[in-house]
């Protein structure tokens, strides 16, 4: 399934969020099962399946990381089920450092502040990698695709780390 095509977009890492959202609403009005409430059972099922694709497509295209993954997938680079180990030593060192900081944050004098400053650092790194990713995805030769795939792998680590920071923050702020 090419979600860019479904949303009538040229495949690109830069997606105009407002256009995407407007197209999403338009597709919803065309495919939502409620618009087929009086239709035959078969037509209802077709609407249901198409609408599920619209919902999934919107999620994939809305989020930069999944959008990049989808672009690579359309170029034949499959990242979903791979079991590849990270080769970048410097990146792994940085990871370990941050994980230590995460574990130690709860013993800091102000644990929430410690977590927030760690989160800021990771967020800045995510921003930097996303812009590099965009540049590689603009080219589409094999080497650029491989570089882009590597960045996607790294970004997955970082998003996971951010999620874990968030869980700790939640625990501290009495959820």
């Amino acid at each position: 399934m090419n979600y860019f095509a479904l949303f009538n977009l040229t495949p690109s890492f830069d997606v105009d969020k407002a256009t995407l959202a407007a197209t999403y609403q338009q597709l919803q009005k065309l495919t939502h099962p409620d618009k087929f409430a009086t239709a035959s059972e078969r037509d209802k099922l077709i609407a249901l399946q198409k609408n599920a694709q619209v919902n999934d497509g919107y999620q994939v295209l809305k989020t930069p990381l999944s959008r990049a993954e989808h672009m690579l997938e359309l170029r034949g680079v499959e990242l979903q089920h791979e079991q590849k180990t990270m080769q970048d030593g410097a990146f792994l060192m940085q990871q370990m450092e941050w994980r230590e900081q995460l574990d130690e944050a709860q013993h800091a004098s102000d644990p929430l502040e410690a977590l927030e400053s760690l989160d800021d650092e990771v967020a800045a790194d995510i921003k930097r990698l996303l812009s590099e990713l965009g540049a590689f995805l603009e080219q589409s030769d094999e080497a650029a695709n491989e570089n882009a795939a590597n960045l996607v792998r790294k970004l997955k680590f970082l998003f996971k780390l951010r999620h874990e920071i968030e869980i700790k923050e939640d625990a501290l702020s009495d959820f």
Partner: peptide
């Protein structure tokens, strides 16, 4: 009748989407 028109129904759905989005552009 459902079986005979299954592909037609799917095509119509895709067609309506294409038409609407082209209209949007």
């Amino acid at each position: 009748a459902d079986a005979a028109s299954q592909i037609f129904a799917e095509k119509r759905m895709d067609h309506s989407i294409k038409k609407a989005l082209a209209g949007h552009t």
